[in-house]
Amino acid sequence: MRTPLTTVTGAMAVLPETNVNTDAIIPSAWLRSAKADLARGLFGARRFDDAGRERPDFVLNQGPFRSAKILLTGENFGCGSSREAAVWALARFGIRCVLAPSFADIFYENAFRNGVLAGVVDEATRAALAAAVDRHRDAPVFTVDLPGTAIVGPDGDRHTFMVPPHRAGMLIRGDDEIDLTLRHLDAIERHLAKAKLERDWLHDASTDTRQYP
């Protein structure tokens, strides 16, 4: 059981570029320990200079965006490295929803596994949301309503996003993916038993750990 997610309300930060990679989201300097301060590491190389001082031109160092809850960004967000710390860093910073026209596959999976909503918006919606943020830079507060697949802006304007229905349900209920899969335990073991018969070359003694301590 994970913390359920139904709505996200808060400031929406905009990172307009496309193809933002996970090295940028969480630089490798924050991957050297299982106990690293990932909230500080989020966009670390872009947020801080070599001396660790904030770079004032980066959006997450500006006014209400310092406590952003929603990130609006460009196509193919989260490409590159599989590092799940990219999602952990977003979540620990407080961002529980990322909206983009598309996501890199591994990032997309990682997001849902950590209770972070990756919502797909079309290009027109992305542009409209970015414009709304621009008009309300002092209080760019939006609400993402997951059951309603709606985004409500500061002017009461409504937009939609796309999320596969079962994934949405999993977030809303706080389902644990492993729990769900373990319901199919019999089918998994049946598959392995069949494979051992039909593809003995794949499951012969060479993979028996007892022979290779």
Partner: peptide, 8 residues
């Protein structure tokens, strides 16, 4: 895959 999927 990511770390949650490694666990999975």
């Amino acid at each position: 895959v990511g770390t949650s999927e490694v666990e999975h």
